[in-house]
């Protein structure tokens, strides 16, 4: 009982703090100075039509590098924690339904195409590397669940991941050598505003991020899938 009353007190106190926050909140009616700088200068400086992409990949590109590193560490730790040592190809306990197998054959190429489209067009349309990578990973889930067609190559996933992560850092360092600073996108020509081949290195960087995120998430899913039915 005393535990519950402490809990209620804590939640009530937190609710009071949050209520103060809410009553002090008023909707903004114009951009603050940092965002105004981004809105005015980002289209000409980076050549990207999507300002969120311009911020994520160039102005705050270092954040994104850290984020990709965190995702890599997560995948590595999960692989380390779950590694069973034994490489057994367990048969699924019941065979897949006809619906799942047929649907996955139809959907897999479309899902992969959509994922690639999303991260290639990250500088023009909503979306980008992270979303595209998540769509690619969802394609891998479908592949894994339906278990039709060839097996997923772990080596290919690892090569993709290593190559894209390394390429990301190399592009960043090239920015120091050839342009203004780390992850500067002007190492390639900015091109015509609003076309696919524009915004300098942003499409390249975002594609690498997309491949890396897709590979990391797929690795997490594959590792977690290996533990299926283990505790029986």
């Amino acid at each position: 009982m005393i535990r519950n009353s402490i809990l209620i007190l804590l939640i009530a106190g937190m609710a009071w703090i949050l209520f103060q926050e809410f009553s002090a909140y008023h909707g903004a009616d114009k951009l603050n100075s940092i965002s105004e700088y981004y809105a005015k200068n980002a289209p000409t400086e980076t050549g990207a039509a999507n300002l969120v992409t311009a911020i994520v990949v160039t102005y705050r590109g270092f954040d994104t590098l850290g984020e990709v590193t965190i995702l890599f560490l997560t995948a590595a730790i999960i692989g380390f924690m779950i590694s069973t040592g034994k490489k057994t190809d367990r048969k699924p306990e019941q065979s897949n339904s006809e619906l799942l197998e047929t649907a996955s054959n139809v959907l897999l190429p479309i899902l992969i195409l959509v994922g690639v489209y999303i991260f290639i067009n990250g500088h023009l349309t909503p979306g980008g590397g992270f979303l595209g990578g998540a769509v690619l990973a969802s394609a891998i889930i479908l592949w894994l669940m339906s278990a039709t067609g060839p097996k997923i190559s772990h080596a290919l996933l690892e090569v993709t991941e290593a190559f894209s992560g390394f390429g990301f850092v190399i592009l960043g360092v090239l920015g120091i050598v050839l342009a203004g600073g780390f992850l500067d996108n002007k190492i390639l020509h900015l091109g015509t505003f609003g076309t696919l081949l524009s915004a300098g290195a942003i499409p390249v960087i975002y594609s690498l991020i997309g491949l890396k995120v897709g590979a990391e998430l797929s690795k997490i899913i594959i590792v977690l899938n290996q533990t299926q039915g283990e505790e029986k």
Binding site: A28, K30, L31, N32, S35, E36, Y38, A39, K40, P43, L51, V52, A54, I55
Partner: peptide
Amino acid sequence: AATKIVDP
């Protein structure tokens, strides 16, 4: 852009 968009 500065007068037409939400905060990115």
